[in-house]
Design a binder for these strands. Structure first.
Lengths: 345, 345
DNA sequence: CCTCCGCGTGGAATCGATTACACGAAGGAT
DNA sequence: ATCCTTCGTGTAATCGATTCCACGCGGAGG
C-alpha cells in the first residue's frame, strides 16, 4: 500500500508538501497541488488513519457500548448514533455488552486502548471499574438511555414518567385494578425508574403495588417468561402485566400462551419500548415509545460537543404512550385520546 | 495518559525492556519483570493500540459491512461474528450499509483507511468500485450471506434450495397451487437465488411461476407491502405469498390486513429468514431458518485463516424449513414431518 | 588464563503521518 | 541598491510502540 513518501516521490515534492495538499493547507503553489493530486490518483493513495491518529492524537472515532444488540431498541439507537456521527465526520465503533458487566468492561477497555475520541455508554450495571476509570481519566463521555448516579457525565435519555401515568390511566379506565410489573435489573437506572414511575402512577389512582406484583427480570425474554409464570401461580394473579422492556414482554406472551390464556381477555400486557413488530403480534401490544432516533442524535451531539471542547449538556426527551389491543381497548374507536396527548407534555 | 516511556522511567529500565515484558518475551530477568509490572499497575498504563498498530502493521481488527442493521437477521449475524472474533483475539468494527451501495463504499473505504486486518462483507450490490478495489488490493476478505459472482473471494452462506423445496412441498400438500414470491433486489445474489430456487421447486411439482407472480422488492418492509398490494389487485391473486426476507413479509402482512383479509384462510404467507418474533405474530409465520450463528462463526474463521496466512475456504451450510400456521397447517398435528427432516440433508 | 557463548539490557531505527522551523526567492517600500 | 515581507518549500522532530543490533558480564570449556 502506497505511503505518503511514494506520493512525494511520484510528484517530485517533499512529504510535507503532500501533507499540506492533503489537508487543504493554503500555502501550496497551484503547480505543486496539481502534481500531488495527480500522484495521489495515479497511486490510488489513501492516507493511513493509524499513522495520522498517532501524530494528531485524535481518531475521529466514537465508541458506543450498548447493553444488548439483539434488542431492537438498541439497534435503532446504534443506527441513529452512527448516522449522526457520520454526518459530523466521525466513525462509530459499537461494543455489545450483552447485559454482562464483564463484557462491558472489556469493550470500554478495548475502545480506550484504541484512543477513541469519545465514549457513549448505556451502562449495564452500577459502575464497573473500567467505566469509572474512563470517567475519571477525563475521556469525553456521555450516558445514553441508562446512567450511573453520582458519576459526573451528561445523560441523554427519555423520561417515561408521564407516559407511564398515561398508561396507568388507560388501564384504570378499562377497569383494571391489579397491575403487576416485570422490572429490569436493579443495577440499572431504567430498571429502577420504571418501577418507581409505575408505583407513583398507581398511587395517584389509589392503587398499591404489592411486592408480589413486582417481578425481577433482567431485560431478556426468558426472565419475562419466568416472572409471568410466577404471577400466574399467585392465588390472586394480576389483571395486567407491564414489562419494563420489549424483550421481556415476549417472554410474558409465551408464558400466557403456554397456559392457554388469551390476551387481553384473560390478562392484559403492556411494555416499555415500542418496536415495529408490536403492530404485528397477536394481539398488537400497547407500549411506551421512546424517541429513539432523536435520543441517538442528541447523544452524539452532546458527546462531540465535549470532544471538541464545548460543553455538552444532558438532554431529557419525553416518551409517549401508544395504545394497541393488548390491554383490552379497541384503539380504532373507544379509548381516551387525551392519554396520547398528555404524554407529550 | 501514561506512555511506555513513563513506565520505563518509573521502573528504572529502558523502553525496550518494558516492551519485552509486555509482550511476554523470554529474555527478561525476573527482577526487571517485577519492576515493570509494578510500574504498569502503579501508573494504570495501557499500551496505545494506535502506536502498536503503526509499528506492527496489524490492528487485530476485522471490518464487517452488513446490508441493514435493522434487519434482525443481520443483527444476529453481527453478534455471532463479534463473539467468534473476540474469542480469537480480534475486535470487529461494524459498518451499516442500509442497502445503499454508496454507504457500503463509504464504510469499506473507512475501514481500509484504518488498516483493518480483514474484511467481512455482505454486499448490497453487484460490486461497487470500493469493494472491487479492496478485493484487488489483496485485503483478506470473505463474503457472508451474499456475494459477488466473478470475484475471487471465499463465500460463507446458507443454501436454501432444499428448504425451499420443502416449503413448496408443504404448500402443495396443503392444496395451494398459485404461489407468488416477493423477490429481493436483482443486484444481490440472495435476491436472485431465492427466486430461482422457488421456480425450480415449483417446476418439480409441475407448477409455473408466471411473471405476474414475481414482485420486485428491496428487502425492506415497505416494498413487501407494495408488491403484495399488486398481487391482491391481480384478476387471479396468488394463494400464497413467499417473501424473500423477514422484513418484506411484515409489509405483506400489513397489506393483507389493510384489505381485511385473513392469514392463512384468505391467503398464506411464508418468509426466508426465521426470526424469534415470528413465533408471536398473528398468525405465527412459516419461515426458512438459516444457521445464522454458525454462519457468522464460520465466516470469521475463514477470514482469520486468510489474515494469518492460511487458506480460508468457502462454506455452505443448509437452511431448514420451520412450519408454523401462516400457510394453513396446524403444526401441532397435521403437517408432513418429512418436510422438516429432508431439509437437513 | 584466555576464549567463547549466552543472557539481559539499552540505544536507536522504524512505521506514516503532521508541523515547527529555517531558508531562499521574489517583490515592494524606502 | 538595500532591507523587509511574504510565499512556497524542505528538513527534521515527533507521536508510542516494536525490534534489530551491539555491548557487558559471568560461567563454561579448553
Amino acid at each position: 500500500m502506497a505511503s505518503i513518501k511514494d506520493v512525494a516521490a511520484e510528484a517530485g515534492v517533499s512529504v510535507a508538501t503532500v501533507s499540506r495538499v492533503l489537508n487543504g493547507h493554503p500555502s501550496v503553489s497551484e503547480d505543486a497541488r496539481r502534481r500531488v493530486t495527480a500522484a495521489v490518483t495515479a497511486l490510488g493513495y489513501r492516507p493511513n488513519a493509524v499513522a495520522r491518529s498517532l501524530r494528531t492524537d485524535q481518531t475521529r472515532t466514537l465508541g458506543l457500548v450498548i447493553s444488548d444488540v439483539l434488542n431492537p431498541y438498541f439497534t435503532e439507537l446504534a443506527r441513529s448514533v452512527e448516522e449522526e456521527a457520520r454526518a459530523l465526520g466521525y466513525s462509530v465503533i459499537i461494543g455489545n455488552a450483552d447485559e454482562r458487566p464483564d463484557l462491558q468492561d472489556h469493550h470500554v477497555r478495548t475502545l480506550l486502548d484504541r484512543r477513541i475520541d469519545g465514549l457513549l455508554v448505556s451502562p449495564t450495571d452500577g459502575g464497573s471499574p473500567g467505566m469509572l476509570d474512563a470517567a475519571r481519566a477525563g475521556t469525553p463521555m456521555v450516558f445514553v438511555d441508562r446512567w450511573i448516579p453520582g458519576v459526573d457525565v451528561p445523560v441523554v435519555r427519555a423520561d417515561g414518567r408521564s407516559a407511564v401515568r398515561d398508561l396507568v390511566a388507560h388501564l384504570h379506565a378499562l377497569g383494571h385494578r391489579r397491575l403487576a410489573i416485570i422490572a429490569g435489573p436493579a443495577a440499572t437506572t431504567t430498571g429502577r425508574e420504571r418501577v418507581d414511575a409505575f408505583r407513583e402512577a398507581l398511587a395517584a389512582f389509589g392503587l398499591e403495588l404489592p411486592d408480589a406484583y413486582i417481578g425481577q427480570g433482567d431485560f431478556q425474554a426468558e426472565s419475562g417468561r419466568r416472572v409471568t409464570e410466577g404471577f400466574l401461580d399467585l392465588p390472586e394473579p394480576p389483571e395486567v402485566v407491564f414489562a419494563a422492556d420489549n424483550l421481556m414482554v415476549l417472554g410474558a406472551l409465551d408464558a400466557v400462551r403456554a397456559r392457554g390464556l388469551r390476551v387481553p381477555d384473560d390478562i392484559a400486557l403492556a411494555a416499555f419500548d415500542d418496536i415495529r413488530w408490536f403492530v404485528h403480534t397477536d394481539p398488537p401490544i400497547t407500549a411506551i415509545a421512546q424517541p429513539t432516533d432523536e435520543l441517538g442524535r442528541a447523544a452524539v451531539r452532546a458527546l462531540i460537543d465535549r470532544v471538541e471542547g464545548r460543553t455538552g449538556e444532558s438532554v431529557t426527551l419525553p416518551a409517549r404512550l401508544v395504545v394497541r389491543r393488548s390491554c383490552g381497548a379497541d384503539p380504532a374507536s373507544g379509548q381516551n385520546p387525551t392519554a396520547v396527548q398528555r404524554s407529550t407534555s
